[in-house]
């Protein structure tokens, strides 16, 4: 099947800065795809390369099999929901949504009808007469979404779509976006620095760092089996274990990762296990997170609330199942 978006050795350099560096990537049609990474990692530049605001300095980009280098944004059947929404302040909501159809020469009645339908889709029916300045942040975002979707794009790009919303609104919007994507079957590509958002919404996630993709995979893959120290560290809060440590328990000299909730803590310091000292405790509600010092190695473990919590400075024994210790591809 032709990929919705394909990068082949695609680079975007700004002088000496390698914003995107020889990236290979295929996004499948109808997929909800997340680009995750810290700021400056190249994820937003990748989005802008798909939209056409940036041009690759090397390599190629195809959208549904058609080469896109040198094609201006206005000739790509791809639409973007901008981080600051970028609603036109001089137009009312209906004309904002109808803008794409207007510049394509669709008649006034027809485009207004389509815009009304799109507003219904994002649950803002009847808001067409308002100016963007009269809407709340969440409503503006829905308008931005409707304005993009009304053009029936082959790919919808979302740049930190939930970044400006408060926590509660963000959670309900996550759910809604996911349902919308399923119902429409349009390929969604969204950029975020929030790993929780990426893991909970996306079908697949690409983790970016320093202009390169560190790992691409389903959320469980990324979470359970990080390929490198960076991914283990950035996605969630895995304990990164050095090769010496891993060799002792798994027999292979590789970097490893272990999730905090997979570490069990025993007060009894006799018997097998990793001896450690409790450095500090952080109460998180459903669980308590412990910072531990195992002979110079800093580890984190979570203990469910209700279980006995060792006090600061206590000496404890740590145990875990060997098969839960994940060996990373990254070489020692």
């Amino acid at each position: 099947m032709t990929p919705a978006v394909a990068f082949q050795k695609t680079s975007r350099h700004f002088g000496a800065v390698r914003a995107v560096d020889a990236v290979d990537l295929e996004i499948k049609p109808g997929e909800f795809f997340a680009m995750l990474g810290p700021s400056g990692s190249g994820k937003t530049t990748c989005l802008r390369l798909i939209a056409g605001f940036e041009q690759p300095t090397a390599g190629s980009i195809s959208i549904f099999g058609e080469r896109a280098e040198g094609v201006p944004p206005y000739r790509r059947n791809v639409n973007t929901v901008f981080q600051d929404y970028a609603l036109f302040p001089h137009l009312n909501v209906l004309d904002n949504v109808a803008y794409g159809l207007m510049v394509k020469g669709v008649s006034r009645d027809e485009r207004h009808r389509a815009a009304e339908d799109a507003l219904k889709l994002v649950q803002l029916p009847g808001y067409g007469g308002r100016k963007p300045g009269q809407l709340s942040g969440g409503q503006r975002q829905r308008v931005a979404l409707a304005r993009a979707l009304v053009n029936k794009p082959k790919v919808l790009l979302l740049d930190e779509p939930l970044g400006a919303l408060d926590l509660k609104l963000r959670e309900s919007m996550q759910e809604e976006l996911k349902q919308l994507q399923k119902a429409l079957g349009i390929t969604f590509v969204f950029v975020t620095h929030d790993q929780g958002e990426a893991l909970s919404m996306a079908d697949r996630v690409a983790v970016f760092n320093d202009g390169r993709i560190m790992q691409v995979g389903a959320p469980e893959d990324i979470y359970q089996r990080p390929a490198s120290r960076f991914v283990a560290d950035f996605v969630g809060s895995s304990n990164v274990l050095p090769p010496d440590f891993v060799q002792r328990y798994a027999g292979e000299r590789r970097w490893g990762s272990l999730r905090p909730e997979q570490i069990r803590i025993r007060r009894d310091t006799s018997g097998d296990g990793v001896a450690a000292r409790v450095v500090s405790r952080h109460y998180l509600g459903a669980a308590t997170k412990l910072s531990l010092d195992a002979d110079g190695l800093r580890l984190h473990a979570t203990v469910p609330s209700g279980a006995a919590i060792p006090e600061d400075g206590a000496h404890v024994m740590l145990t875990f199942n060997r098969d839960q210790l994940h060996l990373m591809e990254e070489q020692a």
Partner: peptide
């Protein structure tokens, strides 16, 4: 906002249409 021009081009307006429908009114 600088992204207004990008938004207009993203929605299919070429340079002249963007000038006419977004830049000039603003």
């Amino acid at each position: 906002s600088g992204s207004l021009i990008e938004a207009s081009m993203d929605l299919g307006a070429d340079g002249f249409q963007t000038f006419r429908h977004v830049i000039l009114p603003n």
